[in-house]
Design a protein around this nucleic acid. Sequence first.
RNA 1: GGUGGCGUAGCCAAGUGGUAAGGCCAGGGCCUGCAAAGCUCUUAUUCGUCGGUUCGAUUCCGACCGCCACCUCCA
Length: 477
Amino acid sequence: MGMKIYNSLNRRLEDFEPLNPEQVTIYSCGPTVYDYIHMGNARTALVTDIIRRYLLYKGYNVKLVQNLTDIDDKIIRRAAELGISVKQLAHQNGEAYFEDSQRLGIQPADVHPKATEHIREMIDLIQILIDKGAAYVVDGSVYYRVDQFAEYGKLSNRKPEDLLAGARVEINEEKEDPRDFDMWKAAKPGEPSWDSPWGKGRPGWHIECSAMAMKHLGETIDIHAGGEDLLFPHHENEIAQSELATGVTFARYWMHVAFLKIDGKRMGKSEKNFILLRDALDHYPTEVIRHFLISAHYRHPLDYNQESLTKSEGALRRLNNCLDTLKQYDGEVGLNEKTDVPLQHAVQEMKARFTQAMDTDFNTAQALGAIFSLVSEVNKAFNTLDEMAAPVLAEAYQALAETCQVLGIYNNVETQEETGDNVEQRDELVKLLLEIRQEARNRKDWETSDKIRDRLKELNIQIQDTHHSTTWKFTTK
RNA sequence: GGUGGCGUAGCCAAGUGGUAAGGCCAGGGCCUGCAAAGCUCUUAUUCGUCGGUUCGAUUCCGACCGCCACCUCCA
């Protein structure tokens, strides 16, 4: 079965067919770097990350471009407040963005273009639009003439009259039409500016995405993603600029991520009710936050609260307990046609359900359901299977590790450097303690055995008695 | 005023024109010296309300109620 993506342009689920089967192109609207990113920003970035991971899992080549808006009103204002240069503020927050993203397990895009490094491309694009009569210059500013683009409003499903009646349209005497938007802002005293054919100034917001997407991905891109607040006017304006300039479709699939809420309201910087991603990461592991953010479908609102994070913690614990136990079978071979245990079917079913879920507009919530169903089956199997089933358990491990890594909820990397004399010594010490405890247990000296268990737990080492042995592992808390 | 979305068990959350995935929490049982982990049973005859279409609707249509968002910078 092929993939389907919900396209905001038609508000329908559509079959996904990349323009060039060799390479899927994705443009994701990135942050304006005037501050650290919050959990809502993280949700959008994470969705993009998972879309890319899944497309790679499906065998596509992907080129992902995500911009950094490093010049705008908010950055100028914030820099002034802090008494540092715009450039410095943007640089600091840009670096912080990469750091935070990386901590959330988000892999860097192939290109992270910055607005200030593409002034030339933006000027060229604006000039094309002026030449076509789609833009006009007033006192050093350039505005887009909305009524020149017949399809204006096709993304946001708005008619020209809808945009005027009752709408909160900025009053600006310079504009011919209130709907027109600026592509180039004439310089104001003290603000950063660049030379242009229309005098010193700086780019408007929407033009950067058009220019940078086209430069790095071509005139037509496959997927354009962003938060749902960008649908109008940002994305509508990107379409207007790009398509009038090139005459071809700008983006074939528009994807919009629903808001993260907090206490039932949109988490937003202007409401001052946001949780910074870096603060959340200080309290919860990467995988827990990722699990929380993908526990609902990306087009549905999700409410941030401590209870939900606690639920994700519990779910991750269940998953990791299973994977930790399964991992020891990794590498077991010997599976053949004669091997026939029910778990094999469960593995196949999980893979099929996972793919089906992700194929259908990246339904991560449903994909998690498939994964946890197999976790249940594996746990049951532990109680009943004999050692002959080891290859099947290895297969289950592979399937779970692979799918969980698409979602980024399984950290298979050893947390500490698992080499060196200290580590060996540590392991031997734990082993020694467990031996002493076993001896105590043998003579029913529960006081001593429980003391060892309790004290180890205080040291974040959790031990478990099974039928024939005692296992131990590190815990996070 | 315009546009769009949401309302599923105690909580979170998938989903389908044919009788409700998964997770968290809770309680009983099994296992265990006790824990932990795991298993197991219990937890929505029901999917905001009221109508309609249909052999049959939670799923389609209409009305209503409630909530949210965009139309202004915001992922």
